[in-house]
């Protein structure tokens, strides 16, 4: 007992008081900013291993980007990654960053279904399905619930059964072998329900796009409520994304 009290004393307060304003330490690759500097655009496009960059005007698709930082390293005058981790959005289009623009990425309240605010504002239970995820986004989703990020304080939790869930959180590019279990899980979740894609692999297939071992047809059938980019997505990106989706009103 005394040992426990000593540990509690040494640990002190670990939680981040305000997850909407916390700073991330050191270098962090969050929302990129593209300047209007003139560079050899073709070289820039060719260098990206994931085809996330297009030319004329230069754009960078965070839904395809693995945040490897190669473009910023080779073209520092053109692309810079800021520490802005609030990059989750409900519109796929908003993940595309254009040159010369430096706007925050966020939720478009007009696109949020009414029942999301009505029903999930104070409590959101999610069922996570890893469908070919490499355990990095899964690891960060678990971290979002640890004592530091403590997502549970907002009433957002991961639950064991789809029957108890208000939505499905998908990680990974969706392998052929997981396509059916994912569908079964989704069907078992009661309406109304949301779909959240976490990580580049889930949003676009990432580096597995075009692999013969994946089957992304599930995503063609349903409306996606939230895209949370990253490789893996940072816990602060996850929490802010979910909060903004459920709490930001028109």
């Amino acid at each position: 007992m005394l040992g426990h009290i000593k540990i509690l004393y040494h640990e002190g307060k670990q939680f981040i008081p305000d997850v909407t304003k916390a700073q991330v330490p050191g270098v962090f690759k969050g929302r990129p900013v593209i300047s209007t500097a003139k560079v050899n655009e073709q070289e820039l496009v060719d260098l990206c291993p994931l085809n996330a960059i297009s030319a004329g005007p230069v754009t960078l698709d965070m839904g395809k980007c693995s945040f490897c930082g190669e473009c910023a390293r080779q073209f520092p005058q053109k692309i810079e990654f800021t520490t802005d981790y609030k990059i989750a959005t409900n519109s796929r289009e908003s993940l595309i960053i254009r040159e010369g623009e430096n706007q925050p990425v966020g939720i478009n309240p007009l696109l949020v279904r009414k029942e999301i605010h009505d029903l999930f504002r104070n409590s959101l239970k999610l069922r996570q399905v890893s469908a070919g995820g490499d355990n990095s986004c899964e690891w960060e989703l678990n971290a979002a619930n640890n004592v530091q990020f403590d997502m549970g304080r907002f009433g957002i939790d991961f639950v064991a059964s789809p029957r108890h869930a208000d939505g499905v959180v998908i990680t990974g590019p969706i392998t052929e072998n997981m396509a059916e279990p994912l569908q079964i899980c989704y069907d078992a979740t009661p309406d109304p329900k949301i779909i959240v894609l976490v990580g580049t692999d889930a949003i676009s297939g990432g580096m597995f796009a075009g692999s013969p071992a994946i089957d992304r047809s599930f995503l063609d059938k349903y409306h996606i409520d939230l895209y949370i980019p990253g490789n893996p997505a940072h816990p602060l990106t996850v929490i802010n994304g979910l909060l903004d989706l459920t709490r930001k009103t028109k």
Binding site: G172, M207, P212, A213, I214
Partner: peptide, 26 residues
């Protein structure tokens, strides 16, 4: 087998080292 993403064949079919290394990383 549920997690099979075809890593080994992707490493053969992708031509850029920068891409292959990211596959290995995953």
């Amino acid at each position: 087998g549920y997690q099979h993403r075809g890593i080994e064949s992707l490493l053969l079919s992708r031509s850029k080292l920068s891409e292959q290394v990211q596959i290995a990383e995953s």
